[in-house]
Design a binder for these strands. Structure first.
Lengths: 109, 109
DNA sequence: GAGATATTTGCGGGGATGTGCAAGTGATGG
DNA sequence: CCATCACTTGCACATCCCCGCAAATATCTC
């Protein structure tokens, strides 16, 4: 009998039930998606004011959107002096996306 | 000079701007996420009534949720007789998720 | 301390969203 | 046909969400 290959935890079908709607909900808004795109192209941490330039709404709205993205684990905030630098949590995001992909693909076969 | 390797279209950073919020919004609801999980575990096309069992809301609501998932390209519907069979569009989903992952990862470096 | 700058938060309005119930549509079976 | 079954859609209601504006907070500069 062939030796069984251990399946990484994130490939366990049970993890399907652990998916948090908040993660996808956070990406399910055009403004927030624009913010994510902007931050990805920026490559370096951005302030609220810097991000505001890309999405045509008041900066207070941007602040709120960033909070939602932060609580969803998509972005992390770092306070330095009077400004807050937001940056994408690329690894966290790709882990989630690829984890879901792998589970779906595995279950489809 | 080294031969340049062509980058697949979906890895083009410009595709970031083409991401449809509807896709993520569709997954950003607990009931719809439960439906997706249920359908993945099922492995075969499910009817509305079959899906209704998994999420504790009226079947009319499930019908509406499935419509949203269908319009987001997450699910496809096939009518046979008086019932409609819904099935996951696994390949489409994984393409989208992995496409985003790849872009983000590439831009992060 | 006074004033400027960066961000967050409270408030309120307008619109989107999820839900159950009931009625409508369309295919199937007696 | 008429009843039934599977599903979709109209309606009403409650809730949530996005937004701008204004006020609050916190930090820096002079």
């Amino acid at each position: 009998m062939a030796k069984s290959i251990p399946i990484p935890t994130r490939l366990d079908p049970k993890n399907l039930g652990k998916l948090r709607p908040e993660f996808f909900k956070a990406l399910g808004d055009p403004v927030r998606l624009a913010i994510v795109a902007h931050m990805a192209q920026q490559g370096e941490p951005s302030t609220v004011t810097a991000v505001s330039g890309c999405c045509g709404i008041d900066f207070s709205g941007v602040s709120r959107h960033l909070k939602i993205l932060r609580e969803a684990g998509i972005v992390k905030a770092e306070k330095r002096g009077r400004e807050t630098f937001y940056s994408l949590q690329t690894e966290k995001i790709t882990k989630t996306l690829r984890g879901l992909s792998d589970i779906l693909e595995r279950m489809a076969k």
